[in-house]
Design a binder for these strands. Sequence first.
DNA 1: TACAGTTACGGACCGCGTAAGCATA
DNA 2: TATGCTTACGCGGTCCGTAACTGTA
Lengths: 324, 324
Amino acid sequence: MKLQQLRFLAAVAQTDLNLTAAAAKLHTTQPAVSKQLKLLEEELGVSIFVRNGRAFTKITPAGERVVMYALRLLREAQNIKGVSQEFKDEEQGALSIGTTHTQARYVLPAVIRQFREKYPDVEFHLHQGALEHLAEMAQLDRIDFAIATGSQDLFRKCVLLPCYQWHRRIIVPADHPLAHVKQPQLEELAAHPLVTYVFSFTGPSSLQETFAAAGLRPKVALTARDSDVIKTYVRLGLGVGIVAELALDPKDDADLVSIEAAHLFPVHTTWIGFARGGLLRRYMYDFIHLMAPHLTRRVVDLAAVCGSQEEVNALFANIQLPVR
Amino acid sequence: MKLQQLRFLAAVAQTDLNLTAAAAKLHTTQPAVSKQLKLLEEELGVSIFVRNGRAFTKITPAGERVVMYALRLLREAQNIKGVSQEFKDEEQGALSIGTTHTQARYVLPAVIRQFREKYPDVEFHLHQGALEHLAEMAQLDRIDFAIATGSQDLFRKCVLLPCYQWHRRIIVPADHPLAHVKQPQLEELAAHPLVTYVFSFTGPSSLQETFAAAGLRPKVALTARDSDVIKTYVRLGLGVGIVAELALDPKDDADLVSIEAAHLFPVHTTWIGFARGGLLRRYMYDFIHLMAPHLTRRVVDLAAVCGSQEEVNALFANIQLPVR
DNA sequence: TACAGTTACGGACCGCGTAAGCATA
DNA sequence: TATGCTTACGCGGTCCGTAACTGTA
């Protein structure tokens, strides 16, 4: 059993069992992968893949378990390399972050600016994408951190730490009937077509449910993944916008009237997640700390050794998170 | 970075940094180890060992961490092999158990007889030793299970599951003054020299403390690791014996008078421990179940995913254990 | 002088890449 | 015919064992 064989195995398992594609990703040739997988299976004495003729159709039950342990093994290998580089140079390395539009656009710029000042030699990668996209990248270890809001279910292999909370605000053009209502009720809101986030309609704290609980069925004019898109369509008069408070800029959005909505909708929590069992470099701790001052190294370590996300949540149950 | 290099590293770290000895244990030559370690250090870019001239004197801080991850990696490698064999043949493999005298002599024979009937093809190894000895073997992954009573502190890397509880009994020759006392008090006991286990004098539930709490300082004639030794010296009239109830055989020990002592001393719990993160084969689950019927596969799995021994203990806090 | 680690060197092995073969859609 | 896995083969690298060397008790 060689490390490389396990790397091959992991790549194939993560590439829909396509050896050719896996080989390309591994910067090697397809016969090499083919042969090593066969050797590995021979050595272990079990079939890892179900072959239909020459095609790899699926993974056997034994294979599932082998792949699981192989992934954990490879993570430890990563940890060894990571800890070595940590001791070689604490301020060099790479940091890949996956996040959603709102964070990337409104929150992270300030954080990243500070981070880059402190660690100019750390290579920084920012990937923006939908939640499902982020979950997949986290799963494949393509990103060190995922930063997002809402549903934790997709990130089963990650430790998710709450960073801060935020409220929604209602935005309308200055000439809109709601523009002068200070504390609109759900009924008033439901009378107008809405423009809001796609993700606001999934998960436990969805708008849908809030309205439904009040016996209302709002009309949705448009959903977007992107606050700027929502603002644009609100400006066009398409409907009443519901956006994150932190996505509103006093200057740039001065033409829109924004109305408090904290009394209508539940609060949202933005979290940062990293692979359970992954090594955190010093600059990674620092990045987390920049994102959320209450997440000190000690707190992060405490959460990292938790066996499940429920434990982590319990850890933060009584903590007052910053609101932005 | 090669698997072999990590195996070499682990062996050296576990052999007092003696390359020659490590090489012997690995069935290879010393220059091979020497070279691979050097290559590993070069690749990682950190010194793992502190060299004094040519002698390896200690492990660097970076080395400590690397070794830690390497051990975890090697465990996953073991798991891969284990799970493969599990699928090849559920009833073949090996089981190494380390335990103390009392368990080996009075409890395990029945368990092992049943186990061997069920799994005749599993190679069975039983190692008897002192608690510290067992802890070391567990640390080095030389045994799959450790079975012992009392102090859990030495087994930090293990998950310890409570199996059953037992009380001490007092044993005296038939002509001893205490022979006719039904419920002796600590004062009466302290009036005679005692013969008991060495380990009874360490840990939180020690005899020492029980007597001290009553303001007494008993005279100890002899301590042994072995119930049979204690009985022998009690027969010789050396003193009053305090032994585990389960070490008394109605037939063989008919010449001794045994007296209830549950009212005097706290109860003892015998546990079975295995490496956290280690793979449990089917026959291993079955062995545990034979040891303690309440430890079903489900319960064991539940405990195995706990992050700390405290969690495990909490899991069993409300369980009524069998007493033997 | 015994012991422990390093250096040097030759041979065996192994893993990769190229190229040709062979199924399936 | 195109795609994708397998087999065959040769090259280059690597790892190990032997042996000679070096520093230390």
